[in-house]
Design a protein around this nucleic acid. Structure first.
Length: 217
DNA sequence: CTCCCGATAT
DNA sequence: ATATCAGGAG
């Protein structure tokens, strides 16, 4: 089975989008936050860590640190202790502090709203930038490609790429722009609730009928 | 490519 | 024991 027609691919992605919409009508960002800075910090902390654990840490973290200046001025060791349970805590603390110092010095303490400015910050790549732009600012700049999106997109046959930037490009070509942020949430929710990394629940999968990997993983 | 970090599931 | 968890930098 090499490759079917372009038209068949377009029809298939439409069916998949419809099924995702029907299955996860309430899909949203599950990191807890109440402003762009909090979402930026939470997303940096979320690397290789469950969102549940991030939310546990930020519940107290966000009471203690409220502005970019608070993170910028904090003793690094204190910040490390506060975020330790999320793992990679030395890198993350250093990145958060450098990031917040740049916010204070170059952006008036505010979180910038462009991909270029966001990815210039320490510890912020396209994935984190897309989360902030899409969820805090409602800007569909790109598609969030995290571990769930990569796995689900590959299993669905929406991409054969392994590089996150290339995966994002291919997905952006197939999904209407106004759905980019929602699409990211749909795949992340599906990855967490059905399409598990180790043992996907194909028998109960709502996308089974369009998935070339169904029952084969 | 490796490293950073540790809890949890299999 | 090993893979995985809302990655990014060197």
């Amino acid at each position: 089975m090499a490759r079917q027609s372009r038209q068949a691919d377009a029809s298939r992605i439409k069916s998949i989008l419809t099924a995702l919409q029907r299955t996860y009508p309430r899909a949203h960002c599950e990191l807890r936050y109440s402003n762009p800075l909090e979402l930026l910090i939470a997303t940096i902390l979320s690397a290789q860590c469950t969102d549940a654990r991030v939310n546990e840490v930020t519940r107290t973290l966000f009471q203690r640190y409220r502005t970019a200046a608070d993170y910028a001025e904090a003793p690094l060791s204190e910040l490390e202790e506060a975020i330790r349970p999320t793992g990679f805590y030395r890198n993350k603390a250093r990145n958060i502090q450098a990031c917040c110092r740049a916010l204070v010095e170059k952006h008036g303490g505010q979180v910038p709203r462009t991909m270029e400015e966001l990815t210039a910050l320490d510890g912020v790549g396209r994935k984190t930038a897309n989360v902030v732009l899409g969820n805090a600012f409602g800007i569909n700049e790109g598609i969030v490609v995290d571990t769930h999106v990569r796995r689900v997109a590959q299993r669905l046959g929406l991409t054969r790429q392994t590089n996150p930037d290339k995966i994002e490009q291919e997905l952006m070509q197939q999904v209407p722009r106004d759905l980019w942020t929602q699409f990211s949430h749909w795949l992340i929710w599906h990855g967490r609730r059905r399409c598990y990394a180790r043992k996907p629940d194909c028998p109960h999968c709502e996308l089974r009928q369009w998935c070339p990997s169904a029952g084969k993983v």
